[in-house]
Write a protein that binds this DNA or RNA. Structure first.
Lengths: 166, 166
DNA sequence: ATTTACTTTCAGGAAATTTTGAAACTATTG
DNA sequence: CAATAGTTTCAAAATTTCCTGAAAGTAAAT
């Protein structure tokens, strides 16, 4: 396979992959494009390669920056902005975990906490509270496991963790 | 908070949570409803509680059965089918991991494998292949970690793992 | 073999999400 | 300070995803 074909396939696949995990397809594709780029790209480069509008490019770039996956880069003598992706996979994954934990897992934990105080007088209410507590227990464990994971360093994941878990 | 309020809040939140992870909102809500139900529910019960059509209920129930999160239950003397959810959280999570690994992670790994053989003659192609390989390495590790996780038992997760990881 | 009770399918409609593009905005240059 | 180069915003349009409902399918009961 040659580069243009490979590139295209990667952009498509990464977009679809993101999509099935609740990430906007274009955001995933911009991320993919920047990850494989050897140098920083401008908004126009990105618009060209992905055939998307300026507004779309701009909005998704800002989201990626917000997630800590992309950085602005200013080139001396150039007026426009350039963008580079975080290329260390461990950092990429860590940042994604941090964001989704904050935006999705933690609010859910808060809700579960509120729900565990529903008055349990009937059998139906009893089962409700029992199940909410089971879900909460499990989610809290997942939450603190992710905390630990995020604090750990790359080597620990690719090395020690793999051995421990075997 | 009383039961109807709590129930409603849980159904809403679980639906939104699923939604942000790429799971159809209604599928997540049916799952939520069955998880907190003290007994098996019929399709009509589900349609009533969630105010959804028969077609929608049926399609999402089948998807949930496919994921191993819901089972059909036949009641003696009753002609219609009833449904119960898998209530053990560890099993729920395990089944979700199995499904998503199979449907999303593994196809991605296959693509990455193909892409790592792109001819790397130019600097651009070189960076492409380098990055694809880094992503593949990381994804493979994640894949085998999930394999191990799925084989492990509940106690191991809530007990040992938490200690090891601390 | 017909009726009754229920389940499944899927084309078309509804809803949610994403994208566009043009106007407003910001900042640098001459 | 006017012109130029670029960025941001957001209402409306396009697209994607989801849901409905009615018709077709299945199978138990009479």
């Amino acid at each position: 396979m040659n580069l243009p074909e490979g590139k295209d396939k990667f952009l498509q696949s990464w977009g679809a992959f993101g999509s099935s995990w609740g990430v906007n397809r274009t955001m995933a594709q911009i991320h993919a494009l920047l990850m494989i780029a050897p140098q920083a790209l401008s908004a126009d480069d990105i618009m060209d390669e992905l055939k998307i509008s300026r507004g779309n490019a701009n909005m998704n770039l800002r989201a990626l920056i917000d997630w800590g996956l992309v950085f602005k880069e200013l080139k001396a003598g150039e007026r426009k902005e350039f963008f580079v992706a975080e290329k260390d996979m461990w950092t990429v994954v860590k940042n994604i975990i941090i964001q989704r934990k904050k935006k999705e897992l933690e609010p859910m934990l808060k809700v579960l906490d509120e729900l565990s105080s529903v008055e349990n007088n009937t059998p139906e209410a009893e089962e409700f509270v029992r199940m909410i507590k089971e879900i909460k227990l499990f989610s809290s464990k997942a939450d603190s496991t992710l905390d630990t994971l995020v604090k750990a360093d790359s080597n620990w994941f690719v090395g020690t963790f793999m051995k421990m878990i075997k």
